[in-house]
């Protein structure tokens, strides 16, 4: 079947199978930032925005994105830079495999709630797993980004 998607600001038409997942679709379109880290919707690595909302692309049918706006990290490079620099400054990128999905969730939080408390911030991002950092360096970067006093 055919779908039309606005992927990172570009309108594209593509032929897909009905059971194709949005994750596989965007990767096939060259958006390699989107990663698959699990089979069960638990890791958050595949997070992208569907009509500006962060969703799990591993579980979202590509067909359902028809006529919608799909945004991956490739499409928000400018917007992501400030936070990415904070992450890099803490050494919090580590292996980097969870970073794109994590950054997409952080930017979504910023839009939804520009001034979260530390608790709100952590809870919002709880669906983004990371095994390298133990989250503490990510927390430092987040505090800098959101202007929160570290506790």
């Amino acid at each position: 079947m055919k779908i039309t998607v606005t992927l990172n600001g570009k309108r594209i038409e593509a032929e897909i199978t009905p059971d194709m997942m949005l994750l596989d679709f965007v990767r096939s379109q060259g958006m390699k930032s989107v990663k698959r880290g699990c089979d069960t919707g638990n890791c958050g690595l595949c997070t992208l925005w569907l009509d500006d909302k962060p969703v799990l692309s591993c579980s979202t049918l590509a067909a359902r994105a028809n006529g919608k706006k799909v945004t991956t990290l490739e499409g928000v490079q400018e917007e992501a830079k400030e936070f990415s620099d904070f992450l890099a400054g803490e050494g919090a990128d580590q292996c980097g495999f969870c970073s794109p999905g994590f950054i997409m969730a952080v930017l979504a939080l910023k839009k939804e709630n520009p001034n979260p408390t530390a608790e709100e911030m952590k809870e919002y991002l709880a669906g983004n797993l990371c095994r390298c950092t133990g989250y503490q360096s990510q927390y430092r970067a987040l505090c800098k980004y959101f202007g929160i006093q570290e506790v």
């Binding site: 390699k32 930032s33 989107v34 990663k35 990415s84 992450l87 990128d93 292996c95 980097g96």
Partner: peptide, 21 residues
């Protein structure tokens, strides 16, 4: 020093970098 990783920029901007990419 707390030097930033050489690959930080590529990894944090989601560039193809891993086997599956």
């Amino acid at each position: 020093q707390a030097i930033i990783k050489k690959d930080a920029k590529a990894l944090l901007s989601g560039k193809p970098a891993y086997t599956d990419d």
